[in-house]
Amino acid sequence: MISWLAWIPIIFFLVIIQKTVVGVLAFHHLSVDLTMIFVVFAGLNMSMARGSVLTLWAGFLVSVLTGSVTALFMCVYLVIFSLSHLISTRILARTSLFIVCFTMLCAALEGILLMAINRYYLGVTGIEGMLWAILPQIPVLGILSPLFFHAFKKIEAVIHVRKY
């Protein structure tokens, strides 16, 4: 149970960091969705039940803090989690190269989903600006992903849940 609960404040803290520190470090020119890396990590390394619940929690937090519709990021993250989880059953995702590539793929997918939902589901027009916010973060997330995967694994080790 503790392995479930421990992640809740950690994700919360991650979202806060994502909204504050990263903005400062990137001089407010780039938004980096660090939570997405966690979602990929959860999909590749956690059980379906735990991972999906934590993904929904992360999606909820990001939705709330970005001021978007509550279910928007829950939906997007759950799709990414599903894809990651599906991949994890077929591939042993251990190498950094795979993590980088897969994270970049997921970041691109997130962008496509967000734009698609905004355009066709929420009826938002003029989503070109969104494209320029999404594109730069794809390589950044890819580069950062091995580092965060390492950190998440350390956290998992600390809370005594070692699935891998």
């Binding site: 039940a49 929904l56 279910a71 829950m74 939906c75 599903s82 989880h85 589901y121």
Partner: peptide, 24 residues
């Protein structure tokens, strides 16, 4: 078990899409 897991996942996906639609 895997089928069961993906079934749950599918249910969850449907749930969030419904939730999203409802909120909109």
């Amino acid at each position: 078990k895997r089928k069961k897991s993906f079934l749950v996942l599918a249910v969850l996906l449907v749930f969030v899409f419904v939730l999203l639609s409802y909120q909109l």
